[in-house]
Simulated scan of single mutants.
Amino acid sequence: MAPRLSLVVPVYNVERYLRECLDSIAAQTFGDFECVMVDDGSTDDGPAIAQAYAEQDQRFRLIRQENKGLGAARNTGWRHLTPGTEYLAFVDSDDTLPPHAYQLMIGTLDDTGSDFAAGNALRLRTTGLTPSHAHRRPFRETRLRTHVRELPALVTDRTAWNKVYRRSFFDAAGLLYPEGILYEDAPVSVPHHFLAERVDVLAEPIYHWRVREDGNLSITQKKTDPRGLVDRVRSMELVREWLLARPEPVFAEHLRAYDRNCLVEEIPMFFWTVPDGDRNYWEVYQRHVSRLLHAIGPERAADLNAQLRLKYRLTLADAMHRFIAVQRLHRTVRRARQTVRRG
């Protein structure tokens, strides 16, 4: 008989954190699961650790492949799931979960019948747990059987690992993770919010998202890596392309909402790191962000605040020295205001 829950855990050069991750899965109060670990061509002892768990606990099994990246590893894990499992979740192998995470989410889904449940997250540091700023707005309060139309902040719920999907919904959606790029979560997570009939949003933290502090930074911590910027823009473009390809009129509304979120929240995240990058990073920012702005339509910036309008105008004009001067001034003013508030 198939277990009720399938977990997919990609493994790549995380031997320092892997035991803690797998221990937190083994300790779940919801024990009716399978955990498919995918060795994505690791060069450290992570696969040996994973194999030991597979030998000790029949709920764990290990699949091996050559290195293809996180998106490909998740897709491989999905292809190797036991047929007939009811629910599906993804876990990154340097993170952990509180013991009640899956019992809470699956219990909620059993009660509501929603297509998937998404929960709050905490940042995991050596000093302890702190709230995740990225999850603050959409998970401020628990809302069952809701939808992104009713809770627009859900468009910012981009991560793959804070969710439990009803597997019939995930499989029918036909969305696999993009391969060969970073920031592969959003082109799956955001469309799922638009496709779902109902979603359960849980304010209680169900995931511990690690901040690496040993010099081996995670993807999201490499703020001035040009590839990260290129792939994050590409991630937004993939969501837009998916929305543009949907013929139903409601998806035109979803596209407008998503574009506004890109202009107000996602693209401005680059603003803070551009002054810290080198000339190559500036050029990459200008080229790729300008392409995205043209696709959205520069006129969409007309109803934004003056600060955003100025920065987008300077970006499109390739006036990067002026852009950086404006951004440095804005950063200085913001820090001064934060200092005053703390005082």
Rank of each mutant, 00 (worst) to 15 (best):
R61Q: 10
A134N: 10
T315E: 13
L244F: 08
W161E: 13
L70A: 11
R300E: 14
D200I: 00
R145K: 13
L88E: 01
A50G: 08
A73I: 05
G180L: 12
Y17S: 05
T29H: 08
L263Y: 05
Y102N: 04
E20I: 00
A117H: 01
V340H: 09
E241M: 11
V188H: 05
T43E: 14
M269G: 13
W242P: 00
Q338W: 15
R234S: 12
S168N: 14
A301S: 13
P131F: 06
F139N: 00
I181H: 08
I49F: 05
G174R: 11
T108F: 05
E55I: 05
R19A: 13
V250A: 15
R260L: 09
L144G: 02
L244A: 13
I219Q: 14
R136P: 00
T315M: 12
H208G: 06
I206N: 02
L243P: 00
A306Y: 07
L316Y: 04
M236R: 13
Y12P: 00
P47D: 03
D95L: 05
I206F: 09
Y165C: 07
R300P: 07
D23P: 04
R158W: 13
T85P: 01
V239M: 05
P131E: 01
D110L: 09
A27E: 14
R227P: 02
Q338Y: 15
L70M: 11
E241K: 12
